[in-house]
Amino acid sequence: MTILAYLIPISLILGGLGLAAFLYTLRTRQYDDPEGDAQRILRDDFDDRPRG
């Protein structure tokens, strides 16, 4: 059962990575304009003024 000593931290770290990624997107306000972002990737010209 010593394998648990590795497996539990690994599963926690992997889940934690997902959580951290979600919190990062939330803090950088990436959900403010979902429709606009979906359309912007279709533009040919490079968006040289991404929202900071």
Binding site: D32, D33, E35, G36, Q39, R40, R43, R49
Partner: peptide, 28 residues
């Protein structure tokens, strides 16, 4: 309603020298 509208509005606004930044929010 579309990507072209976003680009059109932002380009029209930024063409004016008085305007330093313009950002369209399509959702709102």
């Amino acid at each position: 309603h579309c990507a072209a509208c976003i680009a059109g509005v932002e380009r029209a606004l930024l063409a004016d020298p008085r305007i330093s930044a313009a950002r369209v929010n399509l959702t709102l």
